[in-house]
């Protein structure tokens, strides 16, 4: 790449810019359908109803309702990316280096691809059919009954009598994990495969225990990938809308759900506050993706050299 640049540099860097003309359709498309809509929202976020500049729209941050939606979204995304990340990491660990039987590895690789792409409404349906009030597993657990004292029947395993509720944040976390951990498996497996067997052997040969190997070698080497993958999971959950909508009917106020309601009927009572809400999401996503790109760069640099 550098070579090309150097070869063509003498006197005609303009020629280089002319070459960008072939990218015009692409950039026009992006400008129309990504940049323009975003700008509409951004400028709206900083304007009042009459079009004057204002920061007042961000006063929604004082509106506990809106603020809480941010907190819920961040919380759900964080917790599912950590749970999904840790779980996915162990699963990826199991399917690399021939640790689990071959058929299990095949099943897990295939299903990770499937589950990571399986979200939205059908996922919510699946969880309702399984763990909802009348769901299959709920019914199974409910049906385990014993004869208690005095001829009463005790059914101690009904999850709904122990505070479990699928149509809540807990249920949402359960459902999100279904696509979060497979995504972790898909993103972290290449990094795990990059751990050379010789490293663990060299480490053992030098007298380290297996936990010392993980602490001093494997985890430090994996760290950028692990962090990067977790950030990806965060973004994945943060932008999700359909599963939450279908699972809870919009009764859990995630930012995405709030925005949805704002589009439908201006629940905030001020369209520009809706823009500010959306703008905040983009800011948070930009930060996460920026971190992701930076870490990704670092990882690839390491692996390459």
């Amino acid at each position: 790449m550098k070579k090309t640049r150097n070869r063509k540099l003498p006197g005609n860097s303009q020629w280089q810019w002319k070459n960008l003309i072939g990218l015009l359709p692409f950039f026009l498309f992006i400008a129309f359908f990504l940049v323009m809509p975003s700008l509409t929202l951004f400028s709206g976020a900083f304007q009042d109803v009459d079009g004057h500049f204002t920061l007042a729209n961000f006063s929604f941050l004082q509106n506990t309702f809106a603020l809480k939606s941010y907190l819920t979204s961040v919380w759900v995304s964080l917790i599912t990316s950590v749970i999904g990340g840790v779980f996915g990491f162990f699963v990826a660990y199991a399917i690399t280096a021939e640790r689990a039987p071959r058929w299990m590895r095949n099943v897990l690789t295939t299903f990770s691809g499937l589950a990571a792409n399986f979200g939205g409404v059908p996922l919510a349906f699946a969880f309702i059919a399984t763990l909802g009030r009348t769901g299959f597993i709920t019914a199974l657990l409910k049906g385990i009954c014993f004869n208690g004292a005095g001829g009463t029947t005790i059914c101690p395993f009904n999850p709904y009598e122990h505070g479990f509720n699928l149509y809540s944040v807990t249920g949402l976390i359960l459902a999100y994990t279904y696509f979060q951990f497979p995504l972790m498996v898909l993103t972290i497996t290449p990094a795990l495969e990059g751990l050379k067997r010789e490293w663990s052997e060299a480490s053992a040969n030098l007298g380290s225990s297996s936990s010392q190997y993980w602490r001093y070698v494997a985890l430090p080497v994996l760290w950028p990938s692990l962090l990067g993958a977790t950030i990806l999971l965060f973004g994945n959950a943060f932008g999700a809308y359909a599963t939450a909508q279908a699972l809870t009917g919009g009764s859990i106020y995630l930012v995405t759900i709030m925005i949805g309601q704002q589009i439908r009927g201006d629940v905030l009572g001020n369209p520009n506050e809706g823009y500010a809400l959306a703008f905040g999401m983009v800011v948070i996503m930009s930060i996460t993706i920026f971190l992701y790109v930076m870490l990704q760069r670092k990882t690839t640099r390491w692996i390459k050299s």
Partner: peptide, 11 residues
């Protein structure tokens, strides 16, 4: 990825 779908639709 940075612009969540719901935001994109809104825009």
């Amino acid at each position: 990825f940075v612009v969540p779908v719901i935001v994109l639709v809104f825009g």
